[in-house]
Amino acid sequence: MVKLYCISILYKDTTYATWLKSAFDLQSFSFFQRGSVQEFMSFFCKTIVERTIPSSRQSVKEGEYMCHVYVRHDNLAGVVISDHEYPSRVSHTLITKILDEFAAKIPAVNWPTLQERDVTFPQLNTYLTKYQNPKEADAMTKIQEDLDETKIILHNTIQAVLERGEKLDDLVNKSEGLSIQSKAFYKTARKTNSCCSFT
């Protein structure tokens, strides 16, 4: 299925990332699991941004999901989570476009101190709906041409993004953003050997 699940904007302090704005489309997940899926997507966004150095792009494949991240030189970061069919190129151009707009609207001095609930950036939800159809990307040809795909680092699992000695299981256990229920989800999903796939 061609699908965008999540777009998230974060600010990366030297080692620690905070959310500035997120939008989700989780209709395709089972009703009682949407909460946990959302927590996990937020968790992955943060984890990955914290492990991406400024002025670089990464794409991480995890099961049937793709997670694209771009951290700008000024530490503003964007993440897109999609399924494996959604074209990576479109995801990366979308991040660039959204971060440009966000930076134009909200001054950089505020980024380190902003709380997610104080940020008004409703365009994010509009984009999430609009770009479900990647044909919309035609409008972004200019950015697309500038995008140098060879510079995107591609990882085949999320484990490959983690630093040496880090384990995903430990990170999940330690995380404060994940509820007990979500952690139970994670364990079950792990058992059936399909991380993030709660079906």
Binding site: F31, F32, Q33, I180, Q181, A184, T188
Partner: peptide, 19 residues
Amino acid sequence: QEFTIIPTEDNTRNKSPVL
């Protein structure tokens, strides 16, 4: 619309398991 089995650790909340 749908039926799901929701993974939980144990009956910690002492509530009905039917949601």
